[in-house]
């Protein structure tokens, strides 16, 4: 009865240590890729912050110039996807989720700056060439939460853009942004959010909406709202 002569069979802890070491090595690998992504995200964000200072007619050209930076992010995300898909998605999701959200934000913002339109979660997944809201198998994907959190970052950025657009003489941008933020806000209102990060961050949307509407109010008070926009608004109400 050799097994009964000791309290702890040493192979128990050898096995556990092996598993922990394997996890640590995998974690380090992921972190390396995530750090690269973070660097690329910062470059993309720096380039995109110019959007606040560039007149609209030159914006498309600027966004085209930022495309290589965004492409670099996408390449790193696909490397991350390959690596991460070797193991259960949610075991490691916490390592990259913040960085992926930030990268998603840069893509959403670049797209909005150039076209005033929203990329849906499917559009964004297609851009990244990763599946979205995966349910039937365990692999790397973009979650709904990640998309929504990136969307909230976009709204925060657009609240700033509404004011800065006025500064550089673009009076129609704030009206567009007001409509856009209003529509997103309406969407968030139907979600039953629990007390988590999504809830906490989405609570800020209404304040951003108010900021943007204040800009629109300031403009209309001074008769600065462009003509066709006013007509547009009247038709809609």
């Amino acid at each position: 009865m050799a097994s009964n002569t000791v309290m702890v069979d040493s192979s128990i802890f050898e096995d556990i240590q092996q598993k922990i070491d394997d996890d640590t090595a995998f974690n380090d690998e992921l972190r390396e890729t995530v750090q690269q992504l973070n660097k690329q995200v910062r470059s993309a964000q720096a380039a995109l912050s110019q959007v606040h200072a560039i007149p609209r007619d030159q914006l498309a050209a600027h966004i085209t110039k930022t495309q290589p930076l965004i492409h670099a992010e996408i390449t790193t995300i696909s490397q991350l996807a390959t690596k991460a898909s070797q193991q259960p998605y949610y075991k490691w999701n916490h390592v990259w989720t913040r960085s992926v959200q930030d990268a998603c934000f840069t893509i959403l913002f670049a797209h909005y700056a150039a076209s005033s339109a929203l990329l849906t979660i499917e559009d964004l997944g297609a851009r990244l060439s990763i599946p979205v809201n995966l349910k039937d198998r365990d692999a790397f994907h973009l979650t709904i939460e990640e998309y929504l959190l990136a969307l909230i970052s976009l709204i925060e950025e657009l609240a700033r853009l509404a004011r800065n657009a006025v500064t550089i003489g673009d009076y129609s941008r704030p009206l567009e942004i007001a409509r856009f933020v209003n529509n997103i806000h309406a969407g968030f209102q139907i979600l039953n959010l629990k007390n988590d990060i999504l809830r906490r961050r989405s609570d800020g949307i209404k304040y951003r909406l108010k900021e943007v509407e204040d800009v629109v109010y300031d403009l209309s008070l001074r008769g600065l709202v462009p003509k066709e926009e006013t007509k547009d608004e009247e038709m809609k109400t």
Partner: peptide, 22 residues
Amino acid sequence: ERPAKMESPFMPMFEGFKSELD
């Protein structure tokens, strides 16, 4: 009131999110 008057074009997408999150 405004969203009620003028349906947000993003509603169908958010309806999908709602059921997934629920």
